[in-house]
Design a binder for these strands. Sequence first.
DNA 1: GCCGTTTTCGGCCCGACTGTTTTCAGTCG
Length: 577
Amino acid sequence: MENHSRVPNVEVAAILYEVADLLEIKGVRFKPQAYRRAALAIETLPESVADVAREGDLDEIPGVGRAIAAKIREILETGSLGYLSALREEIPEGVQHLTRLEGIGPKKAIALSRELGVRTVDDLEAAGLAGRIRDLPGFGEKTEANILASIRVSRTAQERRLLGEILPVAREIERRLASLASVRQVSLAGSIRRRKETIGDVDILATSYWPDEVMEAFATLPGVERVLVRGTTKTSVALSTGIQVDLRVVEDGHFGAALQYFTGSKEHNIAMRKLAIARNWRLNEYGLVDPATGRAVAGEDEAGIYRALGLAWIEPELREDRGELEAARAGTLPDLVGYDAIKGDLHVHTRWSEGAHSIEEMAQAARTLGYEYIAICDHAEGLRIARGLSPGRLADQVREIERINRESDGEFTVLSGTECNIGMDGTLDLPDSLLADLDVVVASVHSGFKQSESEMTERVLTAMQNDHVDIIGHPTGRILLSREPYRIDLAAVFDAAATLGVLMEINAFPGRLDLSDVNARAALGVGVRFSVASDAHRRENLRCMELGVATARRGWLSAGDIANTRPLPELRRILRS
DNA sequence: GCCGTTTTCGGCCCGACTGTTTTCAGTCG
């Protein structure tokens, strides 16, 4: 009999995060940090926090001491936390909403609530339009105008956007800045350099001896709608698309320190600064400095800073304070899969089902990318909405692929395949006799997302038992910013995948990135191997492979963990074993 | 509330920008 100790890690973490937010609003010092640290550790824990609690090992989680361990146990047993309820009672209703507005922190939110009785953003807007904010102590006309502007921005701009949407925009700005005569070096920084799956705003770093010229050029780039902040080292603008871009300009000699600092993550940097303090140094965006002598120990390049702190250089994708500093000290950082390591794409659609291009067009585009092979995995009959192929049509497609390979120069191979549908009971929508003739069988869930966790887990495990299944496609079904993953016991799925030799897909489509970085790392930990695949529906989509590789890198994967970094003969052996 | 290459107690990351202030608090990243 299951008790409710299946509260997912993310829910436990969410409660602790809210406690941190409310404590911060109360003006409590240091505790918010402690709760956030514990929440982050639980969010990224490879195993279920409920299992850890059952073993009595909660206090072994970094950042979890006696007090927070007790609160976690309460959450696991009751599904809620009395301490949080009490905090909610204490904080005036709505203050939390107000702090989400740019420029309003805990102090201003409390003042607005206490003095004006503001409860909602709508209340706040009414007070601002009536000119009642400017008379509060510590506020003025400009603050009032800024608050009204923040409300307008919050109504148009989305909170976060897909990496795949932002990356091209950021690269275009980077390119324009690099072309300025006054700019010496320029780099993307922040979460976009770390290739996080969603991005709040774009951070760019440049070096120059004429920062004012750079800032002027930046503030007048095409697409800039509003200048939010304008200084000599930092300028922030809002693009007409609602995307915020921050540019920092420093001198050349500080490039490494500034790049390290502005790349983050915040948690990674805090851990770095603690290492500096332990050596009686200081780390900031201008360098690693010995305060006793005022001399810079390092700062021109990133590697020098890591080296001075006794660490190997850490790839940006790993900088989340998830153990990378310890690994860098011990010399056990993974040799991350390179962006150029992919030799083929194992999940591609064509015009035969819902794709836009022919098999030959997709193959030609893949060849242009330097690939050696591509697997055509159109939907099967179960997905009528995607014009899935009947067994007869699929047999036709296999013959067509054979013809294309026969007529090719032999340097590129089209593999036959399918993305078959895993039915509600785990059965596949193609007969085994046909699956046996295909090179690559991807099996994915496309419907019935509301099943219970045990039903969904059983369903996927059943599909994996089929000897012909090589890969589980987009294993959690999530759609970033719109659909939550379905409930499934991933630990059980990963164990089975490792045992059966079934690959887990890291689907590189911009809105999926499924498995996620954290899930991929958990799977890696139990010996799972992967396919990183574009799920392309047209030629241009093949390029989103980059996003999947980024996710794999954030999940600590090496090339050897990914089947489609292997040359074709070796790939064939992996698929058949 | 956590934690220890200074520590089981006394610390806890650091600087830029803005606005309302006459020397600094609040906010952000």
